[in-house]
C-alpha cells in the first residue's frame, strides 16, 4: 500500500493554489489531515471554519468567493444529498468557484456501514447529474490530479469535486 498524501504537503499545495479558507463537515477518511490542520491552526494562513451542515459549508465558501477569494469544502458523500440546492441555486448559478473534497464511502470494504451503501453507488451519477466535474484523487499523481481539477474550476468559475477513498488522506 502506498503512503498517504502527507498532510503538510496537501495543505501547502492548497495554499500555493491560493485557497485561503477551508470549511466543512468531517469524515474519518480525512482524519489525519484534519488533525494536522488543527495542530497548526495558529501558524498557517489557511483559515478553518467548522460547519454544522454540508450546505452551510458551501454557503460559507460562496461568501468567500463573493469576496474574490477561494475556499475548499470537505464533506462525506452522505452529505452530497444536502448540497444539491446550495450548488445549483447558489454556487453554480452565481459562478462561485470552490474545491469540494468528498470522501468516497460506501464502496465494497464499507459493506458493514449500510448507511453509505446507496450514496456510494450513486455518488458519481449524482455529481454528473448536477454537472459538477469530478476526479478520483489517488496517492499516485495527486498533485497532477488536483492541478487539473483546480484549473478546471478556474476555467468554469464553478465548483469542482475530488472523490477521496480511504487510504488517501487517512487510513
Amino acid at each position: 500500500m502506498s503512503d498517504l498524501i502527507s498532510p503538510s504537503s496537501f495543505l501547502n499545495f492548497l495554499e500555493d493554489k491560493n485557497f485561503s479558507t477551508i470549511t466543512g463537515v468531517p469524515c474519518s477518511y480525512f482524519k489525519d489531515f484534519l488533525v494536522y490542520l488543527a495542530s497548526i491552526e495558529e501558524e498557517t494562513p489557511m483559515k478553518h471554519f467548522i460547519a454544522t451542515r454540508e450546505d452551510e459549508a458551501v454557503g460559507i465558501a460562496s461568501g468567500v468567493a463573493f469576496a474574490t477569494k477561494r475556499a475548499v469544502v470537505y464533506l462525506q458523500n452522505s452529505g452530497l444529498g444536502n448540497i444539491g440546492d446550495a450548488l445549483t441555486s447558489l454556487a453554480q448559478l452565481y459562478k462561485l468557484p470552490m474545491l469540494l473534497l468528498i470522501s468516497y464511502r460506501g464502496l465494497l470494504p464499507d459493506k458493514d456501514y449500510p448507511e453509505h451503501s446507496i450514496m456510494g453507488e450513486v455518488s458519481e451519477a449524482f455529481l454528473k447529474a448536477l454537472k459538477v466535474p469530478y476526479w478520483n484523487l489517488t496517492v499516485d499523481n495527486w498533485g497532477k490530479i488536483m492541478t487539473e481539477a483546480i484549473e478546471r474550476m478556474e476555467k468554469i468559475n464553478s465548483p469542482v469535486a475530488l472523490l477521496i477513498e480511504k487510504g488517501v488522506l487517512s487510513q
Binding site: 454557503g59 461568501g63 468567500v64 469576496a67 475556499a71 440546492d85
Partner: peptide, 16 residues
C-alpha cells in the same frame, strides 16, 4: 435561491 443559506454566505464574506 439557496433558501436557508443567507447566514453562511454573509458569514463567509465577513470572515474573509
Amino acid at each position: 435561491g439557496s433558501m436557508g443559506l443567507q447566514i453562511p454566505v454573509g458569514l463567509g464574506i465577513a470572515l474573509e
